[in-house]
Amino acid sequence: MNPTLVRWLQAPSIIVLFLWMIVPLSMTIYFSTIRYNLLYPERTGFIGLQNYEFFWTDPSFFPALLNTLVLVGSVLVITVVLGLAVSILIDRPFRGRGIVRVMLISPFFIMPTVSALIWKNMLMDPNNGLFAFFANVIGATPIEWLQDMPLASIIIMVSWQWTPFAILIFMTSLQSQDQEQKEAATLDGAGFWSQFRHLTLPHLARPISIVILIQMIFHLAIFAEIFVTTGGGPGVQSTNLTYLIYIQSQQAFDVGVASAGGVFAIILANIVAIFLIRAVGKTLTV
């Protein structure tokens, strides 16, 4: 192919992605420095960093930031530990393995709004839910999940959806593990734990870091689960940054403050993204 043609073929994807990135990004930054509230259209003008100050000093900001970190951190620990355990458990030939795999990864393909409703209604409902039923069976008082432990409920829902993701990735990369090496280790009398520490874990080091980074990108942006179940409440107990910004824009109609929050979210995501892109870049052979 001649170089001109190569350039023409590449151009569309580069141009549209550049526009998709630069136009909204610069608009967000611009909005974040001006007075812009849909309820008070007469108030305009450049106000510097006041929107940021407003966003940071909002009494909901710190709880939302903390919730975001707790949410992301807990889900990461749960999904990686469970994902490791389960994928090692099924990393052996047995009858019905295909079905077990399919059952294990299915939750990942359920749309987030559906999964939120299943958990909210049929499992966690304090009157008619299954958990309440089992609590009554053993004589305990049913927990009002979404009222009393809203953030933990969200963590459970998200972990249910994303542990399958970890299983899927770990399972795939375990298949490329050197079996002979494992057999040799067994013959040498290496127990399960020492094999896990010295063979399996090093083999899974990269997949684990990729799983963690990708999940961080997605979990910083958790929205649908909160929107459908707790609406961020009670109070701000289950509000994360994404939801807080959403509330600023949709209920307070404050474009300026919401944009300042958006810039904050972008910075947070980019701290993670730098590491992820580096990890992916290492594997790309050009």
Partner: peptide, 18 residues
Amino acid sequence: LMWMLSTKMLPAVGVLMP
């Protein structure tokens, strides 16, 4: 390619208003 991937990291809520 890496730059393209980086555009995927832009959180939706960050560009919600625009």
